[in-house]
Simulated scan of single mutants.
Amino acid sequence: MQILTIDVGGTKALFELHLAGHTEQYKIPTGEGFKIEELNNQIAAFERDYDLQHYQLAIAVPGLVQNNRLVSCKSLPGLNGLSFDTVKTQGELKFICNDIDAGMQATCDAKYACELLVMCGTGIGMSIAFNGQVFTGATGVAGELGPCRVMTESGEFSLEQL
């Protein structure tokens, strides 16, 4: 089965197609004005270029993701609301998740009691895994550290501002 993963970031999105024996990669620019419609257009173009019809698709995005829906993304506000209902694809959409949680899923190992993964890019995120299971918090939106408030001698700032 062919698998397409899309890692959407604040400045670029990485499309990675896993084929039998090799991997194809393609990058597109994103940014504050990047919208769901543009993501759908890029997916459609990728499907045409590689003649994809029956494949699996997974999307990782920055921001707060709950139940396969992007609730809030400061760096890409045009993607807010991204969900199974808004993604247009010829494939089977498996999940939409937070990018840091996707990174932790790819690296965590049940042999470790606790693991931490911190990513710094357009935003700052952290994921925690216990015994190989990613902890997503009581409401499923753990992981975004950037908006956390920090008190300093100069006043209150977000971690991203500092």
Results as ranks from 00 to 15, higher is better:
39 L>S: 10
2 Q>A: 15
140 G>A: 07
145 L>M: 07
45 A>G: 15
151 M>W: 09
84 F>T: 10
78 G>L: 00
31 G>M: 05
66 Q>P: 08
129 A>T: 06
22 H>V: 14
51 D>V: 15
10 G>D: 03
22 H>G: 08
106 A>C: 08
141 V>P: 11
144 E>K: 06
55 Y>I: 01
128 I>P: 14
160 E>C: 05
150 V>A: 03
96 I>M: 01
136 T>Q: 13
60 A>Y: 02
98 N>I: 02
154 S>K: 08
135 F>C: 00
24 E>D: 15
149 R>C: 05
115 E>H: 05
107 T>R: 09
143 G>I: 11
8 V>A: 02
12 K>Y: 09
24 E>M: 05
23 T>S: 05
123 G>Q: 00
18 H>N: 15
103 G>V: 03
57 L>C: 05
22 H>K: 07
127 S>Y: 03
27 K>C: 06
46 F>D: 06
128 I>Q: 10
116 L>F: 11
125 G>P: 07
40 N>G: 14
69 R>N: 09
33 G>I: 15
27 K>F: 13
126 M>W: 10
50 Y>S: 04
5 T>Y: 10
116 L>S: 14
14 L>M: 13
67 N>W: 11
148 C>E: 07
2 Q>E: 12
55 Y>P: 06
43 I>Q: 00
146 G>T: 06
154 S>H: 10
4 L>F: 06
31 G>P: 11
102 A>Y: 09
107 T>M: 08
6 I>A: 04
15 F>K: 13
105 Q>S: 11
53 Q>D: 12
78 G>P: 02
109 D>S: 04
10 G>T: 13
157 F>H: 11
9 G>H: 07
86 T>R: 14
72 S>R: 08
136 T>L: 12
38 E>M: 05
136 T>E: 12
